[in-house]
């Protein structure tokens, strides 16, 4: 049974039609990886799913909630947001809070979890991501990789129906990318539903149950990683992947 069902989702910025009618189904526990060129609308799609952008039209069902996106209310938006969590490319930690407080914030303020309980949860997820000894560190005292660990821990602690990852390793130093990818693999592969935007094709091949290729605001191709990445049927997908391999090439010379 699908936990997310999006139909004909459209989004334009002024004259620019960025998403041209997206249909998306995600099953419980499924890991969906979205790939596509820069500017194709991947971030916008994720942001529409937790209403950081308001889609222009379409329908959206998430777990027990459903709405017509054109007429969604503030109350519905908050309800939808409480069922999602987002891991940002630039981490998005609360700069005025410690690692532990960052995680408690959504629990205590938005979900009314008692402080003590939230503090315990925060402690345990931070331990899970390897930062059990940095509870009181503030964002400016943490490296990029550590900040993203907190970001991931924050999303986990909220125990959402779905975690949205928007290029979680793109802002990291190259040598930190793999350890964060490993962490993400760990946390999503135990039955979490996740939608992940990434340019790390190997990782995508590895963790995805489903890969979706988006180009120019449309889903061009979707299927298993073996299908989409290993044997793409559409010309645009082939071109993107070829370009992508070309773009990667300099690394082979190192």
């Amino acid at each position: 049974m699908s936990v997310i069902e999006v139909r004909r989702l459209k989004k334009a910025f002024k004259q620019h039609q960025v998403l041209k009618g997206i249909d998306l189904d995600v099953d419980e526990g499924e890991i969906v990886v979205i790939i596509g060129a820069s500017g194709s609308g991947k971030t916008t799609l994720l942001r529409c799913l937790n209403f950081l952008e308001k889609a222009d039209e379409g329908s959206y069902r998430l777990d027990g909630l459903s709405t017509d996106l054109k007429h969604v209310t503030k109350k519905q938006i908050t309800a939808f947001r409480l069922k999602t969590a987002m891991v940002f490319q630039t981490y998005g930690l609360f700069l005025n809070k410690t690692a532990q407080e960052n995680i408690m914030e959504g629990l205590v303020v938005a979900r009314k979890v008692p402080k003590k309980e939230a503090a315990e949860t925060a402690k345990s997820v931070l331990t899970q991501v390897g930062l059990g000894d940095r509870l009181n560190a503030r964002p400016y005292q943490l490296s990029g990789g550590e900040q993203q660990r907190v970001g991931i821990a924050r999303a986990l602690a909220l125990n959402p129906e779905v975690i949205l990852f928007d290029e979680p390793t793109s802002a990291l130093d190259p040598e930190k990318v793999n350890e964060i990818l490993d962490l993400i693999r760990d946390v999503v592969s135990c039955g979490k539903t996740a939608i992940l935007v990434t340019h790390e094709m190997e990782f995508a091949y590895d963790v995805a149950d489903k890969v979706i290729f988006i180009d120019n605001g449309e889903i061009v191709e979707q299927g298993t990683p073996q299908q989409v990445l290993g044997d793409p049927q559409q010309e645009r997908t082939q071109q993107f992947l070829a370009r992508f391999m070309l773009g990667k090439q300099p690394e082979y010379f190192l």
């Binding site: 409480l82 999602t84 969590a85 987002m86 940002f88 609360f94 914030e105």
Partner: peptide
């Protein structure tokens, strides 16, 4: 991004 992070954890 501070606003967005707050909204993303469910805050009004």
């Amino acid at each position: 991004c501070q606003y967005e992070a707050a909204y993303s954890v469910g805050e009004t």
